[in-house]
Design a protein around this nucleic acid. Structure first.
Lengths: 248, 248
DNA sequence: TTTCATTCTTGATCTGGGTCAATGCCACGC
DNA sequence: GCGTGGCATTGACCCAGATCAAGAATGAAA
């Protein structure tokens, strides 16, 4: 594995979700300017580790493009993914100095980062930021608890359907797609990563995906390209009540 | 079931964790006074529902004494507990108007509450409060993610040991016990509630508790009174690395 | 003290998903 | 063209935990 500290830092990305979505929606212009001054970009290749659990973490940031995962590992190697980071998701916690989980780029990844100290300074000067962070953290907490239901009580087939519906939803909101008509996207995860997210083995993931395909719930082109002809049907398979249910 | 709105509201509880731990540790005296003015108490009997998922929730608060659970239920009745509320834990989210989960008192319960509107007013006036809430929410998020590992990857025996070690730890910190020597406490949950927390059936919970007793990892007096002769041993059984691991 | 209702325990059996193993399918570099 | 290595699929078998079923504690009410 490449050394995760050998990172390109660049300035050219113009689409910073921190600025637009995560933190500054309601800040005054001069605070926005200050944010611009302290921000920088980090790029990772697919497979690279962004940070190891327990490592000192001196930045916070958000995903600009690509996908990263948050995972926990037991001593004997069993691993559980505890979060999926898609563009606009925030990483890192103000007030904590070390990472609680392994963060791994599963695709090529660009993050917009701020060194923690100046970011925290700004947080104390700008109450909106703390409030916005609280809101985002509450969303993450809800997503984690929703996932506890998936892990604790759903069957393998329901787990797969739940994961597909979450990815489909996030992907749709990312690309501002219409919600009717078939949904098409590329799976950003290997079968093994899906298994780690769902508390299954990769064989079971493969079998259940094949079963869903055979039953016409999804269509597959190659191993990763997925078409969902009927989202309602998928949500039924996931065991969600059609309207409420899965978030983020 | 009793109507959860027929509640005693009283003023006599002198040990309010909101004041001491949850919110006001660093606030100025006059804000403390204002908090005192808007707070009130609600009492529930064991088995009463504090609030139903989806109900309008016009208060926030924290547990003074007793235990409550946060649960999610699927249409077909499968339920998953997503949180265990012990004294000093916070309930409710500023900025959200309805409850996301069922909150049920599993023992007699006293909560210290604030109507949401004045509480939020005070939050905007007192940045410390938003920061403290962010910190607490991050702790809850870590606990939820830790629990995802339990649900997704641990065996039934490890799940039981994990739950017992969490309860033991919380109970110890509540009563300021020494950490060496045998730990003694009463299980605040039925076998069924434990099963709902662990993603198991109540039969499996019962069997695994019997097995842990037979193996000398725990001792039982009656159905609920637990003695843990060796905490290290229990943590091993839980699959945690002895030092780090389980939080809160 | 005798109901009666909970809650818990234990046994017998079944099954969903894990485990182990073989094979297929690309996309690479050569 | 032809290895080679990293996913992915599929099959055969097994086992941890679910399910079904029968009691046993406990304790409150009568």
């Amino acid at each position: 594995m490449l050394n995760e500290r050998s990172l390109a830092i660049s300035q050219e990305c113009g689409d910073c979700p921190i600025r637009h979505k995560a933190v500054c929606a309601r800040c005054e212009t001069d605070e926005l300017e200050r944010l611009e001054e302290i921000k920088y970009y980090r790029k990772f290749e697919a497979g690279q580790t962004v940070i190891w659990s327990g490592d000192r973490m001196d930045f916070v940031g958000s995903v600009v493009s690509g996908i990263a995962t948050l995972t926990q590992t037991m001593e004997d190697g069993r691993t559980q993914m505890v979060g999926l980071l898609l563009p606009s998701d925030f990483v890192g916690r103000p007030g904590r100095s070390s990472a609680a989980y392994d963060v791994v780029a599963t695709t090529d990844l660009v993050m917009c980062c701020f060194r923690k100290a100046p970011f925290e300074d700004m947080m104390t000067r700008t109450p909106h930021i703390a409030e916005r962070l609280l809101e985002m953290t509450l969303d993450e907490l809800d997503a984690a608890r929703e996932w506890m239901l998936v892990l604790g009580r759903k069957t393998a087939r329901e787990k797969i359907a739940s994961l597909l519906s979450i990815i489909a939803r996030r992907d749709a909101s990312l690309h501002l797609r219409r919600s009717d008509g078939p949904i098409v996207f590329d799976l950003p995860l290997t079968r093994e990563a899906m298994a780690d997210y769902l508390g299954l083995t990769l064989e079971t993931v493969s079998r259940q995906i094949s079963a869903l395909r055979k039953d016409g719930v999804i269509a597959l082109e190659g191993k990763r390209h997925v078409t969902i002809p009927d989202m309602e049907r998928l949500l039924e398979e996931a065991g969600d009540d059609a309207d409420g249910g899965m978030l983020a």
